[in-house]
Design a protein around this nucleic acid. Structure first.
Length: 686
RNA sequence: UGGGGUGUCGUCAAGUGGCCAAGACACAGGGUUUUGAUCCCUGCAUUCCUAGGUUCGAGUCCUAGCACCCCAGCCA
């Protein structure tokens, strides 16, 4: 494939240094070691392209090796899909396709060797007991009672394990390291478990299977890998990787860890992807909404776009979440240069051109790809009846909408200027047809008088167009990080797939081959689905929309108009209309009060200090700004007034004001509301 | 609270003691345009998790904190 360009990251630095020192005879040999228990996703693509890219860059080698050490989870179906995906991505393993299961015998012999060295033992503890003996993060573990078996006994037992003399789970082979090691992985890890199960490649040849930590370093060592690159979660396993190889005194590759890829608006764990498939939330591993390689391929992504993406995201050790927008950018960037353009109307509305002859078909030239002159031209039929996009017409155009509306003139791409004269609706008010006229002088879209038009619309001839189906895909999840939710299924994007069956496309599109990608002008990039297209009847998958400034503008105004009514509910109702509800009113504790004392306040020329009896043990002190109306406060004494009793007390420099006295005010008047009645202080007013 | 990692713009990510802290995506503004696309221009971290320190000079070195991630499968 293409030659890998050097990227600057820490793994390059490590390799450069190794080469400088002449380590491994200056070889570079990498590998991609998938377990065939699921489909590959874009996170794997990052690893595949990293490993194979490094091999290319340093003129080394790259192996594809299946890490098939667990017969319970692995299947040939997955092997096949993985091979297809890695090949499609362009990684070249030449003749080096390997299986860990091919090394089972060598691994077995190595285990015997380790037993002989007194570094491994057969343990009879149950899985539960092993867990208990392991200790915790903060407490050391303790030795198994079987830890001190002799080399002879261990050898005998292990041989019999291999011969099938023991039941599943009854015995394991463990490395003898250190049960008090602060790294849990070093507390006598299990190397082999008894598993009477059929393996997808070795069948019934084995009934003991090696564990990852034991097997992986051996696989790398056997293949003479120089740099064994894996993801961060294996960092704590590296001491073990090193311990096994050192104990065996074998060729020793270097394990290097990097951060796995996380992509916004999707999930990347095999378990969750499997769940999406099994529970039918998507239509399979290759559903175009899936972040799997096969899903992306069916969606219309290309190896080059994925390669470009992995180059842009870089390689580092910090946990990160890459913006889906970057992946979308990469595929747009490529398809813009390569995809031939066609016209297709996703949501058609009929246009009738009054002044165009009924029986005439005019063939017009259209450019196949403005980015690539070599793509040539094609001819488009133009007739009296056309379809245009329903969204390209607005009977009452909003601000900044400059497409078609009554009385307005637009350009039909590669054709003529068109003016809307009349809107025809059905009984329900839905627009059925647009009656328009065209200007014959504007052929191929130019006006001789220099008249300008603000918009250019795509269109198809109603007589010639074909009806096809399209699937409009969107992001699978509605939030950036679905994994952060209680249940990631709760945030599945309900609109991730919209199937539309009445897409009107120009005739040439009927001839397209499955797997070909085109641009529907102004709408997006679409690929003819490889699974459901039939000869002459393509089914289109939308890979990605074009960037759309108008859609963004619309969204913004929608958002702001959505927010406004929400605000208005709070503010407008009480303020503009002067209304509160009965609930608001019932919050006010209004009492009858009798003024028992009233006087001026020293240093405050507006305030009067009142002592008001509202039926409580003691009168309340209330400061009221009513002095302008009561130069002689004494006249207030003995009057019955209305007091807001549950007003939050307010500290003033003259003292605490514990309520409010209602007063009425008008032009030049201010008076405390007082009254004569049978009501007594403390009575509630409603 | 054991061990292993990581902290630089909204998101990725360069930077390996010495010009005003690369670049990309996103975002905002402008220009060109027969795709409201593409393309082009402009803007976008006085600051690198925090606090001290070393130094003529620190994102880079030292010390002490803080935050986040991984590990207790007979999964990989």
């Amino acid at each position: 494939m293409s030659t890998a360009e050097r990227q600057n990251h820490f793994i390059n630095d490590i390799i450069d240094e190794d080469l400088r020192k002449g380590k491994n005879e200056s070889r570079v040999h990498t590998r991609f070691p998938p377990e065939p228990n699921g489909y590959l996703h874009i996170g794997h693509a990052k690893s595949i392209l990293l490993n194979s890219g490094l091999a290319e860059q340093y003129k080394g080698s790259f192996n594809l090796r299946f890490d098939d050490t667990n017969p319970l989870k692995e299947e040939d179906e997955y092997v096949d899909s993985i091979i297809e995906d890695v090949r499609w991505l362009g990684a070249d393993w030449e003749d080096r396709l390997f299986f860990a299961s091919d090394y089972f015998l060598q691994m077995f012999e190595c285990a015997l060797d380790l037993i002989k060295k007194g570094l491994a033992y057969v343990d009879d503890l149950t899985a539960d007991e092993i867990r208990q003996y392991r200790g915790t993060l903060t407490e050391p573990g303790k030795d198994s009672p079987y830890r001190s078996r002799s080399v002879e006994e261990n050898t005998d037992l292990f041989l019999r394990m291999r011969k099938g003399k023991f039941a599943n789970g009854s015995k394991v082979l463990r490395a003898k390291i250190d049960m008090t090691h602060p790294n849990l992985n070093m507390r006598d890890p299990v190397m082999y478990r008894v598993l009477h199960a059929n393996h997808h490649r070795t069948g019934d040849a084995w009934c003991i299977y090696p564990m990852y930590d034991w097997a992986h370093g051996l696989e790398d060592s056997i293949e003479k890998i120089t740099h064994s690159i894996c993801t961060l979660e294996f960092e704590a396993h590296r001491p073990l990787y090193d311990w096994f190889l050192n104990s065996l005194d074998m060729y020793h590759p270097q394990q290097i860890e990097f951060a796995r890829l996380n992509l916004s608006f999707t999930v990347m764990s095999k378990r969750k992807l499997l769940q999406l498939v099994q529970e039918g939330h998507v239509q399979g591993w290759d559903d175009p909404r899936m972040p799997t390689i096969s899903g992306l391929r069916r969606r219309g992504f290309t190896p080059a776009s994925i390669r470009s993406f992995t180059e842009k995201i870089g390689v580092a050790k910090r946990d990160s979440m890459v913006d889906m927008a970057l992946l979308e950018h990469c595929i747009r960037d490529e398809l813009n240069k390569t995809a031939p353009r066609y016209m297709a109307v996703l949501n058609p509305v009929k246009v009738i051109i009054e002044n165009f002859p009924e029986d005439k078909t005019e063939w017009l030239d259209a450019v196949n790809n403005p980015e690539n002159p070599e793509a040539g031209k094609r001819r488009l039929p133009f007739t009296r009846e056309l379809y245009i996009e329903r969204e390209d017409f607005m009977e009452e155009p909003v601000k900044k909408f400059y497409r078609l509306s009554p009385g307005r003139e637009v350009r039909l791409r590669y054709a003529y200027f068109l003016t809307c004269k009349e809107v025809v609706k059905d009984a329900s008010g839905e627009i059925m047809e647009l009656i328009c006229t065209y200007d014959p002088a504007t052929k191929s879209g130019n006006s001789p008088d220099g008249r300008k038009v603000k918009a250019t619309l795509h269109w198809v001839s109603a007589q010639h167009s074909k009806t096809v189906e399209a699937r409009l895909y969107d992001r699978l999840f509605s939030v950036e990080n679905p994994v952060a939710e209680e249940n990631f299924l709760d945030v599945l994007n309900r609109d991730s797939l919209k199937v539309i069956s009445n897409v009107q496309v120009e005739p040439a599109l009927g001839e397209i081959n499955a797997g070909e990608t085109v641009q529907f002008e102004r709408m997006g990039y679409f690929i003819a689905d490889t699974v459901e297209s039939r000869s002459g009847i393509p089914v289109f998958n939308r890979t990605v929309t074009l960037k759309d400034a108008w859609a963004r503008l619309l969204k913004h105004t929608q958002n702001t108009s959505k927010q406004k009514p929400a605000k208005k509910k709070k503010e407008v109702v009480p303020e503009e209309k002067g209304m509160i509800t009965i609930d608001d009113f019932s919050k006010i504790d209004l009492r009858v009060g009798r003024v028992v004392e009233a006087g001026l306040v020293e240093g405050a020329d507006r305030l009067i200090r009142l002592m008001v009896d509202i039926g409580e043990d003691a009168p309340r002190q209330i400061f009221a700004g009513i002095r302008s109306a009561y130069q002689n406060p004494a006249i207030l004494v003995g009057k019955d007034v209305l007091v807001v009793a549950n007003l939050k007390p307010r500290k003033m420099k003259f003292g605490l004001s514990q309520g409010m006295v209602l007063a009425g005010s008008g032009e030049d008047r201010l008076a405390v509301a007082s009254f004569l009645s049978e009501l007594q202080p403390g009575d509630i007013v409603r």
